[in-house]
């Protein structure tokens, strides 16, 4: 995996397309140590070589340039990543949400987001004799 400066993200993909990486595989995001990383993979169908690129998103800006102009197939992936992680893709032509009815509220894939299911369903692993914090929930997680 190659780490790319966020400012050079779209340029890098334009260059890869020019070098024969015609097949767009996927784009997603990953929350690494409370910082968001956008990851994308493209393939050269001629020699089956692939390139996996990543860029750390500046938490203050929360944005990266869309690569959908270079790779049309990236629109769906960027729409999904935008609604799930709250990342803004500059220049993304289609901003309609794919799965969420509204983009209000915190993005569901962020570790800080407490899912409604976690509030409604009691943790099945709660020990009977003491209180224990479930694994994978926010520190201030409280069951209502």
């Amino acid at each position: 995996m190659r780490n790319i400066d966020t400012a050079l993200w779209a340029d890098e993909f334009r260059e890869l397309l020019a070098r024969g990486f015609h097949f767009f595989d996927f784009l997603t995001a990953y929350e690494r140590d409370s910082q968001l990383e956008v990851i994308a993979r493209v393939v050269n169908p001629e020699n089956k070589q692939s390139q996996l690129l990543a860029t750390l998103i500046d938490p203050n800006r929360g944005a990266v340039t869309s690569i959908a102009i270079t790779y049309r197939g990236a629109v769906w992936h960027e729409r999904e990543t935008a609604e799930m992680f709250g990342i803004y893709f500059v220049g993304l032509v289609d901003e309609r949400p794919l799965l969420r009815r509204s983009l209000l509220g915190s993005p569901p894939m962020l570790k800080s987001t407490v899912l409604a299911a976690r509030m409604l369903k009691p943790w099945p692993g709660q020990p009977s004799h003491r209180k224990q914090q479930p694994i994978g929930v926010a520190e201030d997680w409280l069951q209502v």
Binding site: A117, R118, K121, W123, P124, G125, P127, Q132, P134, I135, G136
Partner: peptide, 15 residues
């Protein structure tokens, strides 16, 4: 021992 119940990320096991 409840290990599976506590470690399940989907909370889908009950014992």
């Amino acid at each position: 021992c409840m290990i599976c119940v506590r470690e399940c990320p989907a909370w889908c096991i009950e014992l």
